[in-house]
Design a protein around this nucleic acid. Structure first.
Length: 424
RNA sequence: GGAGAGGUGGGUGAGUGGCUGAAACCAACAGUUUGCUAAACUGUCGUAGGGGGUAACCCUUACCGGGGGUUCGAAUCCCCCCCUCUCCGCCA
């Protein structure tokens, strides 16, 4: 969430930045600032009140020790009165803080200056494109036909044992999954990311930490009996590793990578274009996460973008990078680049990675800080990116590399798959 | 799941109602000494909120797993919850 101090100091700039999301947050922000006035005043009153009570209590103690029992007894009611008043002030303080927090939860991150104005995906800006559309001829098939033909992935079986959107990977299809995961993890490790294997279920505090809660409550699977959430991305457990942590400046940047399955209810988002692997309830993804010094976070974002580019190029996939417009950007992000791989048979772009700088929006909730060179604690900037999400990569690989003899595996992957061609 | 023990600052750990935001030791940081390293010595060393000051800093409040309660006063007493450890049970 946004910092109250920043709202107070840069009210106009933040309101202006937020208009890129096509919404006016002036009313909410002004209310937050007003609540903050109340909060500070109440805190001040409460402090004075408690200081007086503490002083009196000490005096009463001294009176008892020096045998002035009557005086002590006489002073007791005074403290009681003060405490009474303190209780009321405390209640006001709590209510004010709670109201302020609830309002803060409703305000998304302020977009970076480079974020284009816009409402929908139409307004996103292409910043980079690589490779060429494959020439597949008339016989080309979409991946949902290829996976059946080569017996790689079985949706029916998944439906039988779990439900729609839970595919079963078989034989070379399963092997391809494992190959991709290992390939992605190795690439991230080579780039200096430390591999982490986190839990796949997280508690409520973690959900709030990275901002999935309360914003995306209905999008996560929730295990009621134990009050745990299935992770929608490794970002959640990885970033939360550093919740309530104060780092040393020289520890930055913290670079982590992790493979996890991702679980998404995708409530209400099923419709056209969701056939096959395009949208699933469970899918695999390798994530890269960094905790960065605020001065470096945008340089680091570019590094992460380069990293993702490199992987896509090794996979020989025609892809493009787009800068999301304000209207298309996620709630917590300040700047997001999406990567889209070309799907040769569907003849459309598929989003395969989203790489973002959250600045201190997540860190504020996480209370992830570092001690700067002045010895002051300061919030870190958090960043993450998919490197990469598997299903649409598989879709593109299968479609773009189909030949009459079988499906060709890109050279960089062959050491991982152990085969260079998927055959019937 | 059953029984018992316990949760205190970065770590170990003292502290059973006021003199404790918290001893001591270790670690860390700064300095002194030294040809360098080591050792020794000296000092600093939790977080958050509020107020004041250009600032160094000062005043103040809260926090000893979390929440509530008793009391003039709670790390210390009471209640609920969470977690950890040991033993037993179950089990990949």
């Amino acid at each position: 969430m946004l910092l109250v101090n920043q709202l107070r100091e840069n009210r106009d700039q933040i309101i202006a930045a937020l208009t890129k999301r096509n919404k006016d947050f002036t009313a909410q922000i002004d209310e937050i600032i007003a609540l903050d006035e109340t909060r500070r005043k109440t805190q001040n009153d409460l402090d004075n009140n408690l200081a007086e009570a503490n002083k009196l209590s000490k005096e009463i103690g001294d009176m008892f020790k020096s045998g002035k029992k009557d005086e002590a007894e006489a002073a007791k009611p005074k403290v009681a009165t003060l405490k009474e008043a303190a209780k009321a002030l405390e209640a006001t303080l709590q209510q004010t803080e709670e109201a302020q927090k609830q309002l803060l939860y409703t305000i998304p991150n302020a977009p970076h200056t480079s974020v284009p104005q816009g409402k929908t995906a139409e307004d996103n800006v292409e910043v980079h494109i690589w490779g060429q559309m494959p020439n597949l001829g008339e016989q080309k098939k979409p991946h949902w036909e290829l996976i059946e033909e080569y017996d790689l992935i079985d949706f029916e079986l998944g439906t039988k044992i779990a439900g729609a959107g839970f595919p079963v990977y078989k034989g070379q299809g399963a092997r391809l999954q494992r190959a991709l995961i290992n390939f992605f993890l190795d690439e991230a490790t080579k780039a200096g990311y430390r591999e982490i294997q986190p839990p796949h279920l997280v508690n409520e505090a973690s959900g709030y930490g990275t901002g999935q809660l309360p914003d995306k409550e209905g999008q996560m699977y929730h295990v009621g009996v134990d009050d745990l959430y299935l992770i929608p991305t490794a970002e959640v457990p990885l970033t939360n590793l550093y919740r309530d942590v104060i780092l040393k400046e020289e520890q930055l940047p913290v670079k982590m990578t992790g493979y996890t399955p991702c679980f998404r209810r995708e409530a209400g988002s099923w419709g056209a274009h969701v056939r096959g692997l395009n949208r699933l309830h469970q899918f695999d993804k390798v994530e890269i996460v960094q905790l960065a010094h605020p001065d470096q976070s945008y340089t680091i974002l570019e590094d992460m973008v380069e990293h993702v580019k490199g992987i896509l190029q090794k996979l020989e996939l025609h892809y493009r990078v787009i800068r999301l417009c304000g209207g298309d950007m996620g709630f917590t992000s300040a700047l997001t680049y999406d990567f889209e791989a070309w799907s040769g048979a569907q003849e459309r772009w598929l989003e395969v990675s989203s790489t973002s700088n959250f600045e201190n929006f997540q860190a504020n909730r996480l209370k992830c800080r570092f001690k700067n060179s002045d010895g002051k604690t300061q919030l870190v900037h958090t960043l993450n990116g998919s490197a990469l999400a598997l299903p649409r990569i598989v879709a593109s690989l299968l479609e773009n590399n189909q030949t009459p003899e079988g499906i060709r595996i890109p050279a960089a992957l062959v050491p991982y798959t152990g085969f260079d061609m998927i055959r019937k």
